[in-house]
Computed example of a mutant assay.
Amino acid sequence: MAVSLSKGQKVDLTKTNPGLTKVVVGVGWDVNKYDGGHDFDLDSSVFLLGDNGKVTSDSDFVFYNNANGGNGSVVHTGDNRTGAGDGDDEQVKVDLANVPANIQRITFTITIHDGEARNQNFGQVSNSYVRIMSEDSGEELIRYDLGEDFSIETAIVVGELYRHNAEWKFSAIGSGYQGGLAALAKDFGLQIG
């Protein structure tokens, strides 16, 4: 039975699931009625952060064009350009036991590709969620449904895995950003041209 979280809640992941080392983080969404004539492409991205809350290098930014990070411990499985269909729209596999020691937080985000240019925002998106499953059993362990109405934001930090006393926990964040991926990347210490 999955633990269902609300914004701001934190929960143990590895302590309550002894032996768990490999997880799949799935994100999903539905696009509401949209007739602006452009594709509506949402992307999940992952930032591997050190103690200071920043990436240590460009390789700590994992997305569809840089699918592996953390010495192969974090793997993005691919880009879904439409969000059509049931189930997860994009997934990231995390091997918790092999995440480099300097990585303290693994932050999961969803952004709208070219959202500002296409006049798109998360007010046009519904049923967004993030969930964590055991890679071995497929069992859903944690789920966070983002029920908030993000009317003008083009990027959302949905949640993060973080180390705490040699265990991994998950925090449901649900923070919206204007400025899309570039704004997020800047906050996390990356320069995107």
Score class of each variant (00 low, 15 high):
1 M>K: 12
3 V>F: 15
5 L>G: 00
5 L>F: 09
6 S>N: 15
6 S>D: 14
7 K>G: 12
7 K>Y: 07
7 K>R: 14
7 K>V: 11
8 G>D: 09
8 G>M: 12
9 Q>H: 13
12 D>C: 13
14 T>D: 06
15 K>E: 10
15 K>Q: 11
19 G>D: 11
22 K>M: 13
24 V>C: 02
26 G>R: 06
26 G>Q: 06
27 V>R: 11
27 V>P: 05
27 V>C: 15
29 W>L: 06
31 V>K: 07
32 N>S: 14
32 N>I: 09
33 K>V: 07
35 D>H: 14
36 G>A: 07
37 G>C: 10
38 H>V: 05
39 D>Q: 13
39 D>S: 15
41 D>P: 11
42 L>S: 07
44 S>W: 00
45 S>W: 02
48 L>P: 08
50 G>N: 10
53 G>S: 08
54 K>L: 08
56 T>P: 03
57 S>C: 06
57 S>F: 04
57 S>T: 10
57 S>G: 12
58 D>G: 10
59 S>R: 15
59 S>M: 10
60 D>F: 06
62 V>T: 05
62 V>N: 03
66 N>R: 14
66 N>C: 06
67 A>F: 12
71 N>E: 14
71 N>D: 15
73 S>N: 00
79 D>K: 01
79 D>Q: 07
80 N>M: 01
81 R>C: 08
83 G>K: 00
83 G>V: 09
84 A>L: 10
84 A>I: 08
89 D>C: 08
91 Q>V: 06
91 Q>F: 00
91 Q>H: 04
92 V>Y: 04
94 V>G: 00
94 V>K: 01
95 D>N: 11
95 D>R: 03
98 N>F: 10
